[in-house]
Design a protein around this nucleic acid. Structure first.
Length: 217
DNA sequence: CCTACCGAAGACTCCGGAAG
DNA sequence: CTTCCGGAGTCTTCGGTAGG
């Protein structure tokens, strides 16, 4: 299978969603024809979308009396939320994984300047509670990677205040701190920290691997 | 470090009608 | 009745990430 991730650009689900919006009323095999994505994956996603209320089944599969041919299930799009494919599980529940980073990334763009406590509070929503420690950690790496500047350094009793200059906003997807502690920007497809150096360290091929992987999508 | 969980894919079973 | 067909739906596995 082709390796494309949501942190790259298009995923399989994005492609399926695009075809659904295009056709509005469809069967699984019609989507299969247009996307060349495996039947099973399409079914799984459609099932989830139906349970979540985005789709409605308009035809239940049966064998036609006249010519003994199969009539496949058909669905209709009843809730269109735009170009971004709904992120749901097969049960139709919203996927919350990764939401906190996303919230923080967008909050940083909006806030003029902020401390780690401000960020945690501003980026928290009903769905996602962001802990102060998480905000601190994310800020630490984004600062190292050059996304943030320090507006007011910490003094006794006050926290450092940061700002993200508009020019450092690279796109809607939050930079990731990968397992190897490197910062990867899915918007540009580049590892932004650490800079290309200490090649001899025992990272093995991890950095190269990531670069290649994401460059493809 | 570890655990929980995700998307994708494939193996497998279930279903209902028609044909033999 | 049994067999066959092919889509629907379930379950498991795999490679991977998020977050403590």
């Amino acid at each position: 299978m082709s390796i494309k991730h949501r942190h790259g650009h298009a995923t399989h689900r994005d492609a399926i969603w695009a075809v659904i919006r295009d056709l509005h009323e469809f069967s699984v095999s019609e989507i299969e024809d247009k996307t060349r994505i495996s039947h099973g994956s399409i079914k799984t996603y459609i099932l989830g979308l139906t349970k979540a209320g985005y789709l409605k089944r308009t035809e239940h599969h049966h064998r036609a009396k006249v010519d003994n041919r199969f009539v496949a299930n058909r669905w209709q799009l009843i809730k269109d939320i735009g170009v971004d494919a709904p992120r749901i599980t097969r049960d139709g529940k919203r996927i919350t994984q990764g939401l906190s980073r996303e919230n923080m990334w967008h909050a940083m763009r909006i806030l003029r300047d902020f401390s780690s406590k401000d960020l945690a509070a501003q980026a928290s929503t009903d769905d996602v509670i962001i802990k102060h420690a998480d905000a601190k950690n994310y800020i630490k790496y984004l600062h190292k990677a050059g996304y943030l500047i320090i507006v007011i350094p910490a003094k006794l009793g006050t926290q450092t205040r940061y700002r993200m200059p508009a020019s450092r906003y690279t796109g809607p997807r939050p930079p990731m701190i990968q397992r190897t502690k490197q910062v990867f920007d899915p918007n540009t497809g580049k590892v932004v920290w650490p800079k290309q150096r200490d090649e001899t360290k025992h990272d093995h091929g991890v950095r190269q691997y990531s670069l290649k992987r994401y460059a493809r999508s």
